[in-house]
Computed example of a mutant assay.
Amino acid sequence: MRSFRWPPPPDGGPRTWGPGPGGPRNGRPALPEPETELVATPHGVRLERLVTGTGEPVTVFAHGLGNGIATTRPFGSGVTGRKVFFQFRGHGRSEAPEGRWSYLDLARDLRAVADLSGATRAFGASLGAGALCRLLVESPERFERLVFFLPAALDQPRAPVARAGLDELLSAVESGDASAVAEVVAAELPPAVRNTPAGWAYLRQRLDHLLRDGLAPGLADLPGQVPLSDAGGLAAVTVPALVIAVEGDEVHPVEVAEQLANVLPRATLHRYARPGMLWTERADLRGRISEFLNG
């Protein structure tokens, strides 16, 4: 039986147990990481930021829980203008202030980065979608176009499976055991991708970031919180919005995306049939996002 294993093959793999030919080898070195910067914010938390592209418009990209700049950049590959990626507090090189964090704190992080860069459009994935919703309740006209990718919660807490998954990831990262972290991160990949060169590349990249920068323990409380007390407050957001959902994802229930699309007056909802569309529907997903944001 062929299965995922760790550590990875030294020559780029993949490798599988048992008889049969090995997978294709790719000896090309990984591209160097782009240089990021730490920026000061009005609320006193320095955040890691990466700016790519040139010109207008400016789009800010907010990542999901336990992820960061590297996993968010592919969403902006076809988006014109400047693209601003950042790390929420407790992720990457961003600071992790003491005390309990809330979605209000995340919304402040997002607003600060957007204001400093003059962003007029926003993309939020999972946790980032929740932070974007929290910002919009206070400032419904802050952005001209919005994309919500796999929203995980609005006015109800996230499912227990999401909390368990984060606890497992935080524990593995805190242990510093690469094998333990790899086993948790591998679950993010569709089974068909896990033993492919693309899967190994993703896994290596995620491990490099998580083991180098870690994740702050303060993130553990977030899955039990809600971005909004009442999702109805988003009815004041009258700008065009694209909501992207997927069937069969317990961490990002399609019902949350449906609720969000129903409450936003000018929202379009698109559903994918099964999880893993970043791998199986990559071109369609990127094209859909860029076509909407480029307007």
Rank of each mutant, 00 (worst) to 15 (best):
F4D: 11
P9T: 12
D11S: 12
T16N: 04
W17G: 11
L31F: 10
P34W: 10
T36P: 05
V39E: 02
P42E: 06
V51P: 04
T52S: 10
T54S: 00
V58P: 00
V58W: 04
A62S: 13
L65G: 02
A70Q: 13
F75Q: 03
S77H: 06
R82Y: 00
F85D: 02
S94R: 05
E95I: 05
P97D: 01
D109P: 06
A114M: 14
A114N: 08
D115G: 10
T120V: 14
A125V: 09
G130I: 02
A131F: 05
V137M: 13
P140S: 11
E141M: 10
R142M: 14
A159M: 07
A159E: 14
P160S: 03
A164G: 10
G165L: 12
D167R: 15
S171H: 06
A178M: 04
V185L: 13
L189A: 14
R194Q: 15
T196M: 15
G199P: 01
R204Y: 06
L207D: 02
L210C: 10
G218F: 07
V226Y: 03
A235V: 13
A236G: 15
A241Y: 11
V256C: 08
A257W: 09
T268K: 14
Y272Q: 15
R274P: 11
W279L: 09
W279C: 10
I289W: 04
S290R: 00
E291S: 00
E291Q: 00
